[in-house]
């Protein structure tokens, strides 16, 4: 479904991403793990059109979408839940969800709103509240629900458990588990590697802007050299 080949992205002198390649098949849940500063966010941003890559290609269902505008990518079925959630704090919960569904027809949007209210009861309780008043866990659910409003075929999430208390981290992974059971295709950046490896079909390991390993959870866990990537020389 998604094929990334030799993607390189620079910020001035910094090559934040060096020739990264990955593949996401339909219905797969793929993890993207690695330490802070490894280039994970840059990789997602370069796929989603927020950053323009300096080299390499991104193909989605065979079509070349390298460097396309994010609003165009969303219409082709590719949605991103950005890092730090980036919900619209002055807009109400409902308005945030509506914006998420701006690309679908009005009738369908109304159905989707009902669906989200059902799936995320905490949001239904704060339907008319400005999103700035939500707690971290609620805000993360809103960010994910907002992305689901566009009926994406591939959902990318950037650090969904960032800054959440452990009980809420559990909730986020339950949510990923549930989306997976619904048969959705996910590409998830996570620093919480062990949790991610539990829910992912496969994962890619990034370090210093390069993809250094790829495999299933058990394959990756078996490799001691990768353990160092996360924990350091213990």
């Amino acid at each position: 479904m998604l094929d990334v080949d030799g993607l390189t992205t620079r910020y001035g002198a910094i090559a934040a991403l060096r020739s990264a390649s990955l593949h996401v098949g339909s219905g797969e849940v793929i993890g993207l793990i690695g330490p802070n500063g490894a280039g994970k966010t840059t990789l997602l941003g370069s796929i989603a059109g927020l950053l323009s890559p300096d080299a390499g290609t991104v193909r989605f269902d065979g079509a070349d979408i390298t460097g396309a505008a994010p609003e165009k990518l969303l219409r082709s079925g590719l949605a991103l839940v950005p890092e730090h959630r980036r919900i619209f704090v002055d807009l109400t919960v409902e308005e945030n969800l509506r914006i998420g569904g701006i690309t679908v027809k009005a009738a369908e949007r109304a159905d989707l709103l009902d669906e989200m209210a059902e799936t995320f009861p905490v949001l239904r309780d704060k339907w008319e509240t400005p999103a700035g008043y939500l707690s971290g866990g609620e805000a993360q659910q809103l960010a994910i629900a907002r992305a689901l409003m566009s009926r994406p075929r591939l959902l990318m999430m950037d650090e969904p458990s960032l800054g959440l208390a452990p009980v809420l981290v559990d909730l986020v992974f339950e949510l990923i588990e549930r989306l997976r059971s619904e048969g959705r295709t996910l590409l998830v950046v996570e620093q919480n590697a062990h949790r991610m490896l539990e829910v992912a079909d496969r994962a890619y390991v990034l370090r210093s802007g390069e993809i250094v390993a790829e495999g299933t959870g058990s394959e990756l866990r078996a490799r001691d050299d990768l353990f160092d990537t996360f924990v350091g020389g213990t």
Partner: peptide, 11 residues
């Protein structure tokens, strides 16, 4: 409020 995120939503 947030131009980039709005574009991510398809605006």
């Amino acid at each position: 409020a947030d131009f980039d995120t709005a574009r991510l939503m398809g605006v």
